[in-house]
Amino acid sequence: MENVSDQHYRFQNLQEKHMTFNQVFEHIVRFMRSRPTGNYRLIVGTDSQVHSQMTIFITGIVIRNKGKGVWACIRKVIIPRRMLHLYERISYEMSFSEEIVSLFTAERKEQLINIILPYIYQGASFKMEGHIDIGAGSKNKTRAFVEEMVNRMKVIGVEPKIKPNAFVASSYANRYTK
C-alpha cells in the first residue's frame, strides 16, 4: 500500500524505474530474507554535480550483505539552477539523505532487524550507515563541514561515514550525477 507521503518519491535502478519507497523497502526485505544469516549494511548517501543549467542530486540506497551481494537504487532530484557554493550543495546533499533516512521509520527498522534477530548467535548483523561525500584531509575543500555533517547524521541515528569510506555517496551516487 502506498501512503500519501510516499507518492512524491521515485526511485530507480537498472531493473526497475518509477519505484515508490514502499517498493524499495519490499526489495530490501526480500533481499534480507533470502539470507537471514547475513551481515547487512543499509546505506544511504547523496552526491551532486553542477551542470550548465542545473544541479543534479542523486541519493543512493544500498543494502549490502558482506561477501554475498547487494541491492541498490537511486533517487534523482534536479534543482533548476547552478549551485556554485560548496556549503549549499553539501547541505542539500545532507538534507536529501536525511529525508530518505527518515522514511526508514522505527517500525521499518524493527522489521529489518527482526529478519536477522533469530540468527544473531550465528553471526547475523544489521547496521545503518549514512555516507557523506566529504573528507577530512588537509587538501579537501569540504573538511570545514565534517563535524557539522557527521553530527547531523548521528542525530538521526545513523552511523556516519566520510571519504574514503563513503562509497555510496562518492562512487555509486556520483556515477549517476554526470
Rank of each mutant, 00 (worst) to 15 (best):
R143C: 01
M128N: 02
M149C: 10
E148R: 13
D133T: 02
E110K: 14
G123C: 06
I120C: 05
Q122R: 14
I115R: 06
K139Q: 14
Y119A: 08
E110N: 14
A136C: 05
I115W: 09
I116T: 12
F145M: 11
F126K: 08
I120Q: 14
N114I: 05
N114P: 09
N114L: 11
V150C: 05
I116G: 02
G137Y: 09
G130V: 02
I115N: 10
K127I: 03
P118R: 07
G130E: 10
Y119H: 15
Y121G: 04
L112E: 05
A136V: 03
I134L: 10
G130I: 01
K127N: 12
I116C: 05
I120R: 15
G123N: 10
F145Q: 09
L117K: 15
R143A: 02
F126L: 13
E110P: 04
Y119T: 11
G130M: 15
K127A: 07
H131Y: 02
G137V: 04
I116V: 15
E129W: 02
N140F: 04
G135C: 06
P118Q: 08
M128W: 07
K139T: 15
I113M: 13
K109H: 04
A124N: 10
F126G: 10
E129V: 02
R143V: 01
G130H: 06
T142K: 03
V146K: 08
A144F: 12
L117R: 14
A124L: 09
E129R: 02
F126A: 08
Y119R: 12
N140V: 09
I116W: 01
S125N: 11
K109W: 07
N140K: 06
E148D: 15
E148G: 06
A144H: 12
A136S: 12
G130A: 13
A124W: 05
I120M: 13
G123D: 04
I115F: 08
Q111S: 14
K127P: 00
Y119N: 12
I120D: 05
I132P: 01
T142N: 04
V146I: 04
K127Q: 10
M149K: 05
G137K: 11
I115C: 09
I132G: 00
A136D: 10
K141G: 00
Q122G: 11
L112D: 07
T142L: 03
V146D: 00
A136G: 14
I113W: 13
G135E: 01
L112A: 09
E148Q: 14
S125T: 15
N114T: 10
E147H: 07
V146H: 02
E147I: 06
F126T: 06
